[in-house]
């Protein structure tokens, strides 16, 4: 602040000014698009009605953790703790819902409203666009797969008699939990986005994603359990089944008796390979799609 008695004045030019500050280039562009898309996936910065569905689905993903912690707080800490791999078995359902409801928005919005030409005429390559969108969507899904587990871990730790003991007991689950959460998000997210990006119509994109989840599921169940033989390979067809198989593999747990993974008799690492293959194929398809689309 200039001293009050100083008798000089200035009038500032408020017109258009040139910008000669930093220009951060491509990396920054990709990061911005990533953040913007991630916020958009949960409806942050958008109208209330865009938030409802992502929030409901996210809440569903947190429900078991909240119930478990509630019970532990009120009744006792002796209740059975939900195992991480079992939680993944449940959380697949909200993840699938999130894919169906939100994947069509991730790129479909830009296609419908023709914003693509604005992106592609900026310091951004088409491949960058595809990868930023994909990364943002996968991250959104990781919020669903990993955050409830983190909450559960912290909550259970605080509720247990001896925090240090608890952490020590559960330490080895941490990397496994992270690997599983990332794998689920990557495989389901990449394929769902690859499917959804094929059309700009939201309704068709949703139905197509849903069909992938829900049609392959009973097919896998029926082919593996009731048909058998070569049909057992169908366990690799349904995202719910191969993702859960991969989780079992990561946690080194035997499948339940008569579950699809038990009946299919595929070595568990096969599911891990399937997760990687689906993630890679989905990513390649998304890149290909936006490499060719007219802007």
């Amino acid at each position: 602040m200039p001293p009050a008695d100083q008798r000089t004045g200035s009038i500032y030019d408020l017109g258009y000014r040139r910008y000669d500050g930093l220009r951060l280039g491509r990396q920054h562009a990709v990061l911005s698009l990533y953040v913007y898309t991630l916020r958009g996936a949960f409806g942050i910065g958008r109208r209330a009605s865009s938030k409802i569905i992502p929030i409901i689905i996210t809440v569903i993903a947190f429900l078991p953790a909240l119930i478990q912690l509630g019970v532990a707080a009120i009744v006792s800490d002796e209740v059975d703790i939900i195992r991480p791999e079992n939680y993944f078995g449940f959380v697949q359902v909200p993840v699938a819902l999130f894919c169906a409801a939100i994947a069509p928005e991730i790129t479909g919005r830009d296609m419908r409203q023709r914003t693509l030409s604005l992106y592609f005429s900026r310091a951004l390559e088409r491949r960058d666009y595809a990868l930023a969108k994909l990364a943002a969507f996968a991250t959104a899904l990781m919020v669903l797969t990993l955050a409830p587990q983190a909450l559960l871990l912290v909550g259970n730790g605080l509720a247990s008699k001896d925090l240090a003991d608890y952490v020590g007991d559960n330490w080895k689950d941490m990397p496994r939990t992270i690997i599983s959460g990332v794998g689920i998000a990557a495989a389901m997210g990449a394929v769902a986005l690859a499917i959804a990006a094929q059309t700009s119509r939201r309704a068709y994109a949703t139905i197509a994603v849903v069909a992938w989840f829900l049609v392959t599921w009973p097919i896998s169940g029926i082919l593996v359990a009731e048909v058998g033989g070569a049909g057992r390979a169908a366990a690799l067809l349904s995202p719910f089944d191969f993702v859960y198989g991969a989780t079992l593999w990561v946690f080194d747990v035997e499948p339940d008796q008569d579950s699809v993974q038990d009946l299919a008799e595929i070595p568990l690492w096969g599911y891990g390979a399937a997760v990687a293959a689906y993630a890679a194929a989905g990513t390649a398809l998304v890149i290909r799609r936006f490499g060719r689309i007219a802007a």
Binding site: Y19, G21, L22, R23, L24, G25, R26, H28, A29, S32, L33, Y36, L118, Y119, R122, A123, L124
Partner: peptide, 13 residues
């Protein structure tokens, strides 16, 4: 503001 960032401007700018 989003489009400005896509073009490399830092967030505050």
């Amino acid at each position: 503001a989003h489009m400005a960032q896509i073009n490399g401007l830092p967030r505050a700018a």
